[in-house]
Computed example of a mutant assay.
Amino acid sequence: MAIVSEILSTVITEHFYLASLSFGPRWAISFEQKQGIKFTTVTRGACWIKLAGHTTPIYLTAGDCFLMSSGRAFTVSSAEGLTAVNADRYRVQKSERSQFFTDQGTDTQLVGGRFFYAKAAVDTLSQLLPEFVCIKANDPRNPRLTEAISRFVEEARSTDETGSTFMIDLLAKMMMIELIRHSISQGLQLSANPLIGMKDERISRAMEAMHSKLSHAWNLTDLASLACMSRSNFSTKFRALVGSPPLDYLQKRRMLQAASLLSKSSLSITEIAHTIGYDTESGFSTTFRRVMGIAPQKYRSDFTKPK
């Protein structure tokens, strides 16, 4: 899990909001596709959730938690077979940090949040996290997740608590780590991802080298040599296990590290470029914009704006 800790340390929550639902005995609502990672716990009653493209709904009861990492559209209902209406019809509160949906009933209540990340971070997290996972109330990991979600709700509702944004980012990572651990312990099949690559003796050598020396001028020949493989075999196996070509993986790791430095440090963009192995600021800025979808200076200014 060391590599997961390292990856998550460079992933920064850029935006978040709290979402609460409270409904009576008979209801069904649909939510449109939306990017971000969603955490929710059922605090009262029970409901059915069904993801778009899936035929079988999942029954949730009080205490159950779930995560959705794909941004897929979904419906939530009090019973199977009900016709769902758009959730906006029942939205009675919307702000930058909070949304509340209700038909004025209190039979079933859910609370949670959605966290948003830069494009490169989303790509990485989607590899590490399952598309959907439910942690039942009697699961040993449930109390830690429930506590983290409850603390998130508390922090999200505060408006002037010192360090609340930092705390929410930390809580999001705590929840993701618990869910990655759950996926591993349950043997859930994920797509190719860094964890799978690290289980391979040869591929892991190259991955560890890249992570330990991001600024080094790695090339395919050097990395294949570390894995004791030919260039073609190494490249093919790396992509099959990790999910991307070796140098693309390295580039993404560098850009996530750069994003972390842009948000957390006072280093100049030129200094950050040198730190992750770029000779020029222009070369770094071009790559950052392509991978992250935003220029480095804009990323820094947007991130440091008052939330």
Rank of each mutant, 00 (worst) to 15 (best):
D64H: 08
T13M: 14
A19H: 04
V4K: 00
T61L: 07
G63Q: 06
I49V: 15
G63S: 09
T13H: 07
Y59C: 13
A28Y: 10
C47T: 13
A73I: 01
T41Y: 05
T41N: 13
G24A: 06
R44D: 12
G45I: 09
K38F: 06
I7T: 01
L60A: 09
A46Q: 13
I29M: 12
M68C: 10
I29W: 09
A73N: 04
L67T: 04
L67D: 02
A28C: 15
S70H: 04
A46R: 13
F66Q: 05
L18E: 09
I37C: 04
F31Y: 09
I58K: 11
T56H: 12
K34W: 05
C65A: 13
Y17E: 12
T10E: 11
V4A: 05
H54A: 14
K38A: 07
G53E: 06
S9Q: 10
C47V: 10
S30Q: 10
S20I: 08
F31M: 09
G36F: 01
R72P: 07
S5H: 13
V42I: 15
I7G: 00
V42R: 00
L51A: 12
R44L: 14
R26D: 13
Q33I: 00
F39H: 10
G24F: 03
D64G: 05
V11I: 13
G24Y: 03
A62E: 11
T10I: 03
T10G: 07
G24M: 05
I29A: 09
E32C: 05
Y59W: 15
F74N: 01
D64N: 11
G63K: 03
L21C: 14
S30N: 11
Q33S: 12
A2R: 04
W48P: 06
A62L: 08
I7W: 00
A73L: 08
L60F: 13
T41I: 13
F16V: 03
G71T: 02
I29Q: 10
Q33N: 08
R72E: 11
M68V: 11
W48V: 04
T56I: 13
A52D: 14
R72S: 09
E6D: 15
A28K: 10
H54E: 15
L67R: 06
S70E: 06
G53Y: 01
F31I: 03
L8T: 00
S70W: 00
T61R: 11
L8D: 00
V4M: 05
C47M: 15
F31C: 04
S20C: 10
T43V: 15
I12F: 02
G45M: 10
R26K: 14
L18C: 12
C65F: 10
R72N: 11
I58S: 12
I29F: 13
I7N: 00
E14L: 07
H54N: 14
A46K: 11
G24C: 07
T41G: 12
H54M: 14
G36T: 03
Y59P: 06
K38P: 00
I29D: 01
Y17N: 11
G36Y: 01
V11Y: 00
L67W: 01
